[in-house]
Design a protein around this nucleic acid. Structure first.
Length: 286
DNA sequence: CGAATCTCCTGGAGGC
DNA sequence: TGCCTCCAGGAGATTC
């Protein structure tokens, strides 16, 4: 289940592709969350991968035929941004062109140097979309909240944003309009670290609690990012293992097991249709 | 408008 | 071994 750390790890693993030129595009199964635009097959070849960035859980691949300096002086061409989302079961591998595709390998970009970017996504919640240079924004990107690891995600911002929200704090931090990139696992983990009960109405959090929560979200994601980086070898290896980093979770998926802090059993409830894990002793209701 | 619920999809786990 | 049910999960769409 790729959360932000896995997406960022994937992006970093793809950086060697920057500067390469596309040879061909293969679409084997176009019905992901949305259909993969078939025009990519004609549009991408001979375009150069200029930059590889990330926004929320989207990987943004900027393509064009111009040089970066052309961009500065405003030269535009048929280029644009390829938007990749891994959904919940998606993985991107870097392979040699002759590596045979497997069952759920839906999408390839082959580069002139022989490398292939391959998207595998058994549950097909992922997405491959194209943002044309001519309409530069995208509905999926233009209403997103701040990046959790950036400075504009801070106590003051969170406190102000939550002030009008009565829903459970766990649901609030999983809402991409509030902050992006916090999925089900790290929502539970961050709330445990901040000692906040997941059902606490969001507006009840004091500025001090918001400060604590912001810090714990950042540290949780940073820890996972560090550990995720260590799964790089597995991730791009030939063994095909998912390579999800094995984090020592405090609460996630530990129902009935002892809390690592106070030894009380970890509880599991449903919140917003999602399993939610917490320690009754450590995370008191407000 | 906010908040809750529904929805897409497949593989894996558990029950019988 | 096979069939059935349930569950997981990101986030947009739909409903209240």
């Amino acid at each position: 289940m790729p959360e932000l750390p896995e997406v960022e790890t994937t992006r970093r693993g793809l950086l060697p592709l920057v500067g390469n030129t596309v040879k061909s595009v293969t679409i084997r199964h176009r019905t992901l969350r949305w259909p993969i635009p078939p025009q990519l097959i004609d549009l991408l070849p001979n375009q150069k991968l200029l930059t590889l960035t990330r926004r929320a859980k989207y990987i943004l691949c900027e393509f064009g035929t111009e040089t970066p300096s052309d961009k500065i002086i405003g030269n535009q061409n048929a280029g644009g941004v390829l938007l990749l989302h891994l959904g919940m079961s998606g993985r991107i591998c870097l392979l040699n062109a002759n590596y045979p595709p497997e069952k759920h390998d839906h999408f390839d970009i082959e580069f002139h140097d022989g490398q292939v970017l391959r998207l595998r996504d058994p549950r097909r919640f992922g997405a491959v979309l194209w943002i044309d240079n001519k309409n530069n924004d995208h509905v999926l990107l233009n209403s997103l909240g701040p990046e959790p690891l950036e400075d504009d995600f801070n106590a003051k911002y969170l406190h102000k944003t939550l002030a009008t929200k009565s829903l459970a704090i766990k649901n609030a931090i999983m809402d991409g309009h509030v902050v992006v990139g916090v999925g089900n696992i790290y929502a539970s983990e961050s709330l445990f670290r901040a000692r906040i009960h997941p059902e606490t109405p969001a507006k009840k959090l004091s500025l001090a609690k918001c400060d604590r929560l912001v810090k714990e979200i950042k540290s949780t994601l940073n820890d996972a990012l560090e550990a995720g980086g260590s799964s790089l070898r597995d991730f791009f290896g030939t063994d095909g293992n998912p390579g999800y980093f094995q984090q020592a979770y405090f609460v996630y998926a530990r129902t009935g097991e002892r809390c690592k802090v106070c030894s009380n059993p970890i509880k599991c409830i449903r919140l917003g249709q999602r399993s939610t894990f917490y320690c009754e002793q450590c995370q008191k209701r407000l």
